[in-house]
Design a protein around this nucleic acid. Structure first.
Lengths: 191, 191
DNA sequence: AACAGTTTTTTAAACGGTCATTCAAGTTTC
DNA sequence: GAAACTTGAATGACCGTTTAAAAAACTGTT
């Protein structure tokens, strides 16, 4: 029990520190010592828990991917129509506790590094496939087969593009507005 | 004349080598020596021409930004209607000599590093503003004012999102297909 | 409660290596 | 002969990871 809990607490603390530190300095530039300082720990203890810098990044993304997956499941639970479920996918991506500048920064760093790390590119592939199949499942009910792929690409690329932009922002983001804009884009694509 | 020409030739060679080398290894990881080897030169000579690694990256992006701007101008020259000009903006982004995996990779690295480098973020801001104003100029002729921003964001984020995906691709891209898909997205947004 | 033994957690210091940049001494071009 | 170009080697850092040893947390026993 408590043996497991301490490890979990430390993991979470270190992951939160990673998000902040990577946002401030960029993944390629940030040092283990900086992340450790952000968490009030030592660089060595990060290696104790995560094995390496790459392992820490993988764990951080796993954490965020889980958050995203959970947010999506919650939205699906109450959505009743295909269109509402499309909204739910969007809302999950722009949820209050996900659509923040530091987290979009991390996502950006993740995308940039995934092609050069098997462990990260694996996560990327899995997540993308999951989002893709959610989109397709709902779009099938709303559009003829010939327009499926165009609509899916338009929506999925839109989501990525918004995060990409958000990562460059100097000011705090507005998740409410982002969700509203996303709904308008859905309505534009599915009249 | 020739004094200037040698410098230009070297610049172009080194920039091409940078695109290839950064694509292969990632900007944060690639070394000056690797880029130099790719160009058949020495690391010292890169510093002679570009001053620093950051200067080299800035010059490389300046090169790509110019290519993009020129491709867009050419498209504008023959387009006759607002919708054709929208197509032209898209076609420029997915032009045969721009929409390749190595160049999308560089773009990705550029996005990821821009927040941490004043010189790169300046380029990013300028380019984004230019594309934005092109989109808005054409959309104004096609949509009521209330829908302008939604449509612009949908299109601009779509473009970014496609590049982001392309940077992760293992196989060569298909610019023809990308342009066709982009046209379909334009038609989806502007019925 | 106290204690001795065991496991988990922590970190300072050492290690082994990397790399951007500079410099001085050449080579080529004009 | 001057200016432009090139580069091997030196410089001066920096950093992820390992290690060894101490501290803390836990265990079961008395």
């Amino acid at each position: 029990m408590s043996r497991k809990r301490i490890r979990d607490i430390r993991n979470e603390e270190l992951i939160e520190a990673t998000i902040v530190a990577v946002h401030k300095r960029g993944y390629g530039v940030v040092t283990m010592a900086e992340i450790a300082r952000e968490a009030g720990a030592s660089a060595a203890s990060i290696n104790y828990y995560f094995g390496s810098k790459e392992g820490l990044m993988e764990a951080t993304m796993l954490h965020l991917l889980g958050k995203l997956r959970r947010a999506m499941s919650e939205g699906y639970a109450t959505a009743r129509t295909p269109r509402e479920r499309l909204y739910a996918v969007m809302d999950a991506n722009f949820a209050d506790d996900l659509f923040t500048v530091p987290q979009c920064s991390i996502w950006m760093q993740f995308w940039a590094n995934a092609p050069y790390s098997p462990r990260l590119s694996r996560l990327h592939r899995i997540n993308r496939a999951r989002v893709r199949s959610h989109f397709l499942a709902e779009l099938r009910a709303l559009l003829p087969a010939g327009q499926l792929e165009t609509a899916r690409q338009a929506l999925q690329c839109y989501m990525d593009g918004v995060w990409l932009q958000a990562a460059q922002s100097d000011d705090p983001l507005n998740p409410d507005e982002a969700r509203a804009a996303a709904h308008r884009v859905v309505d534009l694509v599915i009249p």
